[in-house]
Design a protein around this nucleic acid. Sequence first.
DNA 1: TTAAATGCAAAGAATTTGCATAACA
DNA 2: TGTTATGCAAATTCTTTGCATTTAA
Lengths: 128, 128
Amino acid sequence: MREAGGRATPARRMLLRVLFSEGEHRSAEELAAAVHAQAPDVNISTIYRNLDELVRLGVVDRAYLGGGPASYHLASAAHGHIVCELCGAMTEVPDDLFNDLAEVVAARYGFKIAPHRFAMTGLCANCR
Amino acid sequence: MREAGGRATPARRMLLRVLFSEGEHRSAEELAAAVHAQAPDVNISTIYRNLDELVRLGVVDRAYLGGGPASYHLASAAHGHIVCELCGAMTEVPDDLFNDLAEVVAARYGFKIAPHRFAMTGLCANCR
DNA sequence: TTAAATGCAAAGAATTTGCATAACA
DNA sequence: TGTTATGCAAATTCTTTGCATTTAA
């Protein structure tokens, strides 16, 4: 944080602590709730601003898993996502599942996909 | 529409006409604007309701391409999407690009992916 | 004539912004 | 001591909902 010209504030410490301790795939609201358990005065807009900053620094990944709120997780825990369109169940899938596809897309379009920042939607085993 | 117990209303005719004539990947607001060019009185909530219905009937696909509004296109024009996280450029990719990946995901998780309803995000050739 | 569709206005969820104040370095 | 970060409230964007009215079949 400091290296990037930022400051170490209580709100930021709390947010990072929560990101490490809580499970993956938390929305901004959920992260805010977790932060509030310890520091009730941290404003939601501060959460959003700090998440933006952490995303910009590459510390946190923001993934859009469908219509709902954006989902945040530590960049260190990279993985893909599959999300059921009916029941909403989310499953993590290993990054390397995308290797072949990523190669083709890179070769054909010059596009580098970031598998941990989107979800493949469809139908899960239960809902099919 | 009628087969599904629905009615053929002017608002629906207009919406479908627009979906056929306009390009792909329109947001609800864009579709509303196009409809309004011919029928200024159609309410945006009617657009949303009819889009919901068309999605339910499988006539239209709704894709979440990132943080912005949902994107709608005729289900007949099935294809995948890659969207650049920096410049927002969207490119359509053929469905069959997902064949191998879809097979693995089906075998391993029992999950059937719907490639035309999400976008793979990442960096385009220009932004890399 | 009756269930389905619409318009309107209002609410809702998720996120962003302006501005005065507080606090890290 | 001067930015940087925060709180607060209000605004924005996208979408949904309740309800009275209209309309297709």
